[in-house]
């Protein structure tokens, strides 16, 4: 996943999609761990983006 090319909003949207799919049982248990890994990366990416934005706006 090339998160560096994503914007915060795009990453957030992807995360929401993953959560929504998991919640609606669209993802079976096998695929879940892969999606969770992806989601964790997206969370990390979003947190870093937010930190950078916050620093830049101080």
């Amino acid at each position: 996943m090339k998160n560096k090319e994503l914007t915060f909003s795009e990453a957030q949207l992807k995360l929401e999609e993953i959560v929504s799919k998991i919640e609606s049982n669209e993802i079976d248990l096998e695929a879940l761990s892969i999606k969770l890994k992806e989601a964790k990366e997206l969370v990390k990416f979003c947190e870093e983006k937010l930190r950078t934005i916050e620093e830049n706006t101080k």
């Binding site: 995360l15 998991i22 879940l32 947190e47 937010l50």
Partner: peptide, 25 residues
């Protein structure tokens, strides 16, 4: 406005993170 937006985004990520943790086998 920027501060408010950042805070909202942070809260949104925290909420998503909590949900993901609850899904983790």
């Amino acid at each position: 406005n920027v501060h408010l937006k950042i805070e909202r985004a942070k809260q949104s990520i925290i909420n998503l993170k909590r949900l993901l943790m609850s899904f983790d086998p």
